[in-house]
Design a protein around this nucleic acid. Structure first.
Lengths: 165, 165
DNA sequence: TATTGTTATACTCTATAACTATA
DNA sequence: TATAGTTATAGAGTATAACAATA
């Protein structure tokens, strides 16, 4: 929580309602509050890192998953990305328009597409992954390996508890 | 990462591109990836918790900070919430329209408003905080106190590194 | 009947510029 | 001239219903 300077109420005690320091006492214990703030920063920071490649977090994630899983179908990718199928369509459209991936037909199921990276896509992937790795190293430089692992494990646990709360 | 069932390619080896399990090998090391997934879950889960009170994460956070900091100004609140001032206006509008808070004039600075909770607002606050606390307890039940503190400390560190990466 | 991808649509959150009234 | 709050607006992410083609 940022400590807000505010304007001191002066030497008099007449003005009683001036807030010179914002307290987040009630929120401090809530994971969601900290998560949101940290995620906002990661999101915008990562956006800056990906801008030179004309990628956003969503297009970057989709590209990486397609490279790692050639032949992936859109519904599988949507599931893996935790994105609704309709919202994935525009993401795939964009990657295809830029000729970073292709939509191949699946011979055994003519409803589906097998997503594959192109050479151009793979080259962009290499550069983008390197940039993101360097960026994360900067962002997390003060956290040691053990701490990172604890955090990642905790985040996965939260995932697992989805819907139970 | 959810393990996707996929359809087995059958007993033959002819179909080579069927993905039966989505690998996130490249993404697994990225904090931003896990953070996004966990935050999405917290966000939607929390939304469900706050729905009976007709609150969202943003209106809830604003209400709590106003209760904890009577007389807070909008610009201070925007700063504390990491929200742009224009975006806070509609949040405050909504809370005021529902008579949960009031915009009092600051006598010493007629440009500013001193935000204060009403009795109705305070009553909603009590119930909402209790519900959110219970919800978080459910969501984080598998994480012990030490782990939670490590995670929160890590999230704050990320906040502190804002813009450096 | 069920599933894959698609279209259309709506709502929320975020970000910027420009205005007003005060300081 | 700078600041507090506001208006307008645009972009991005998310969510649901309904459709055509195929299984």
């Amino acid at each position: 929580m940022k400590k807000l300077e505010g304007k001191a109420s002066g030497s008099s005690d007449v003005v009683t309602s001036d807030v010179t320091h914002v307290s987040d006492a009630t929120l401090r214990q809530f994971m969601g509050y900290h998560m949101k703030r940290a995620f906002n920063i990661i999101q915008s920071d990562l956006g800056r890192t990906l801008k030179p490649f004309d990628l956003r977090m969503l297009t970057y994630t989709a590209l990486v998953l397609i490279v790692d899983n050639p032949g992936l179908r859109q519904s599988q990718l949507a599931d893996a990305m935790d994105v609704e199928r309709p919202n994935l369509v525009v993401i795939i459209d964009e990657l295809e328009r830029r000729e970073l991936i292709v939509r191949d037909r699946v011979p055994t199921d003519r409803r589906a597409y097998a997503l594959k990276v192109t050479l151009t896509g793979r080259q962009l992937y290499e550069k983008a992954v390197a940039a993101v790795t360097a960026h994360e190293e900067q962002l997390l430089q003060q956290l040691d390996g053990d701490t990172r692992q604890i955090v990642i494990a905790a985040l996965k646990t939260i995932e697992t508890n989805r819907g139970k709360a």
